[in-house]
Amino acid sequence: MKITLAHGSGGLQTTELINNVFANRFSNPVLDRMEDSAVVEGAPRIAMTTDSFVVNPLIFKGGDIGRLAICGTVNDLLMRGAVPKYITCGFILEEGLESGILEQAVQSMADTASEAGVIIVAGDTKVINGNGGMYINTSGVGFVSEGIDCASANCGIGDAVIVSGNMGDHHAAILSDRMKIENDIQSDCAPLTDMVKSMLDEHIEIHAMRDITRGGLATVLNELAVSSGCMIEISEDLIPVDKRVKSFSKILGLDPLYMGNEGKLAAIVKKEHADKALDIIKSSMYGQNAAIIGNVSAGEGVVVNTHLGGRRGVGVLVGEGLPRIC
């Protein structure tokens, strides 16, 4: 079956779509009331965020737009030291979309939400003219415990810089698909709830945390350095990159430092807590390849100590990170 404009009319077909595709998969006591808005339990400090997902292709190696839509928002909440609780979602479907693809994405959202420990409490669907595309917006709310202050401006001199795994997997997987290049590179798309919650539970002093999405590690670290008025120094040899991604990016003239991920974080942690934090991340669900890659020092910008013993600065990504021309 294909989605048609009738599925967005607000009438019978809309009800059928909601009941058959969304309601059973997302079911929970809050959503099941089917009210105009969700009323939920709160906390003294909450984190809120929103994100829109427009990935092409909709299904890719290692994930799909549904999993991405949960991970993106959940991870944004986690980066402020919040424990994610509630998600809302808005779907914009283009007519012609195969309902099977929609169902797969919705099932992925349900599975990923359950993995990430959040419930989907409200949603909306619209259908527009188009060519079988799908766009999802998710908003999220998380609870922030007393005393947690995880913010970009909080990096301190001497802090350790930890990344939770290999750089560039998602970017390489999506690009391989678009360029029809056969390989087994998988997107790293994943909710980071397990590793962040464990660090919070163990009272790791995390000064700042960012998920390393578009723009890659170089961009994220530059933003942290600017916000905190410091220099971040990292070592090329310590930055984890999968061998396959390394050769893929070499062929295309891309730099894994600027390639996006969807299940990786950079944590700026008090020096004395760095080893323990690394152990926690490494033993968590998606952190096996985590590494301490450098530290925060006085100065400005981001500097990479190269394999050959030189130093180079790295700026933020400019433009789209396009493959080179020859």
Partner: peptide
Amino acid sequence: CGTHTAAISESGITDI
């Protein structure tokens, strides 16, 4: 070559 320019910059050779 432009790719050599990129590689020289990225490996920090001029600094060495």
